[in-house]
């Protein structure tokens, strides 16, 4: 109900009280989340803070009579784009780039000073000019609904740019495929006999242990446990950072019947 009130206010040029309340809540939230994003040491946290900012902005869009944009913001940006970011973060993992030590001398100080100056200039410029401009509001344009208005504009005045964006998207998709496709070096195809010889001559005859065997967790980041409860590091993918895992509790004594090896070890002890 409050939202409806807010939206009806917004058809007029100026903002109503409801919208002001929403703005003064969500605006600082968006700003704080943005600041937190650049200060968060973990990239995943940064992404989540950015999601927060975007969601706030989506609400602000809706309040400004742009419900279509607001939903697109939520679906495309926070839904698709940010998920893509998280995927890539998971693939890439953490590395030295997250170190807090600044390499470039004076970069942080200069960046902060310039940013401050830039913000002051923007605020001063906008403040001096824009407060004097009366706001018209979208009352007439939104007569048939925001979506209808935007659709009419896109398919009439902005038809050519719109078609161009479709070409752009296709190009981007193809480009991403080309860039992300890792060309494997073609290996010499081994015959059956050669494969057997290579395996017997190699350092491991048996297959690598699968993840999570005898494990207490089903995450790929948790290494498998060997039957005697010790960790099998080769069960972890090299690009995934392993998590510390406690040694599993000793198996019951009858488990020894499963393997003769254990007994030999104990005999050795």
């Amino acid at each position: 109900m409050i939202l409806a009130q807010v939206v009806s206010d917004a058809t007029a040029g100026d903002t109503g009280v409801g919208e002001a309340i929403v703005f003064w809540i969500l605006g600082p939230v968006a700003l704080a989340a943005a600041v937190a994003m650049i200060f968060a040491r973990n990239a995943v946290h940064s992404a989540l803070f950015l999601v927060m900012t975007m969601l706030s902005l989506a609400v602000l869009y809706m309040m400004q009579q742009a419900p279509f944009l607001g939903f697109v913001q939520i679906i495309v940006y926070t839904g698709a784009v940010m998920m893509l970011f998280l995927f890539v973060l998971m693939l890439v993992g953490r590395d030295s780039s997250d170190s807090v030590v600044e390499v470039l001398r004076g970069q942080r100080v200069a960046g902060a000073l310039l940013g401050l100056a830039f913000a002051l200039l923007l605020v001063a410029g906008v403040g001096r000019t824009m407060f004097a401009v009366p706001s018209v509001g979208l009352g007439n344009n939104a007569a048939n609904g925001n979506l209808t208005g935007i659709g009419r504009l896109i398919f009439t005045d902005y038809l050519l740019p719109f078609e161009l964006t479709s070409a752009l998207l296709i190009t981007a998709a193809l480009g991403a495929m080309v860039l992300a496709f890792a060309q494997k070096k073609p290996k010499a195809k081994l015959g059956q006999r050669a494969a057997v010889v290579a395996r017997l001559r190699g350092d491991r005859i048996s297959p690598l242990p699968g993840p999570g065997v005898y494990a207490t967790a089903n995450s790929v980041a948790v290494p498998a446990l060997l039957p005697d409860g010790s960790v099998a590091p080769e069960s972890l993918s090299e690009i995934i950072e392993g998590h510390e895992v406690d040694e599993a509790p000793r198996p019951p004594s009858d488990a020894h019947s499963l393997t003769g090896r254990r007994r030999e070890l104990e005999a050795g002890e």
Binding site: G13, D14, T15, E19, A20, F23, G27, A30, L31, A34, V35, M37, I38, T53, L60, Q64, G115, F118, A119, L122, V123, V126, G127, M130, F131, V133, S135
Partner: peptide, 18 residues
């Protein structure tokens, strides 16, 4: 409240991003 506040917020967010 004037819509100009949105512009100020926008400028600040832009600066933070930069």
């Amino acid at each position: 409240m004037s819509p100009t506040n949105y512009l100020l917020l926008s400028g600040l967010l832009f600066t933070v991003g930069a």
